[in-house]
C-alpha cells in the first residue's frame, strides 16, 4: 500500500512539471485538472488505508468541487481569450 502511494506521488510530479514549463494557458489548465483529480483520489486511498470515514467524505467533496471550479475557470479564461482577439 505504501508503494502504491509513492507511485501516485510520482505520477503527481509529471503534471507539476508540465504546468511549470509550458507557457500555454491551456496546458496549465490541463495540469490543474489532472492534479485536482489525482489529489482527490490520493486522499480517498489514504482514507481507506487509515480506515477514516471523515477524510473519505472530504475526498469526495474535493473531487466534485475541484471539477466545478475548473469548469468555471475554463469559461472565464475562454471569455478572456475572446476579448483579446
Amino acid at each position: 500500500m505504501n508503494g502504491i502511494l509513492i507511485a501516485m506521488i510520482i505520477t503527481l510530479l509529471i503534471p507539476l512539471y508540465t504546468g511549470f514549463y509550458h507557457d500555454e494557458i491551456w496546458e496549465k489548465m490541463l495540469a490543474f485538472a489532472t492534479i485536482s483529480c489525482k489529489t482527490a483520489m490520493m486522499i480517498l486511498v489514504i482514507s481507506v488505508l487509515r480506515d477514516d470515514w471523515m477524510i473519505g467524505v472530504v475526498a469526495i467533496i474535493v473531487l466534485s468541487v475541484g471539477n466545478a471550479g475548473l469548469m468555471l475557470l475554463a469559461h472565464l479564461i475562454k471569455r478572456l481569450d475572446e476579448e483579446k482577439i
Binding site: W26, A33, L70, A74, H75, K78
Partner: peptide, 22 residues
C-alpha cells in the same frame, strides 16, 4: 459508490467543457 458516480459524471463533463473552451 458516490465517489464513482461523481467521478464519471463530473470528469466527462469537465472533458467536454475543456475541449470546447480550448
Amino acid at each position: 459508490l458516490l465517489g464513482l458516480i461523481c467521478l464519471v459524471l463530473w470528469n466527462t463533463m469537465l472533458g467536454y467543457v475543456l475541449a470546447y473552451t480550448s
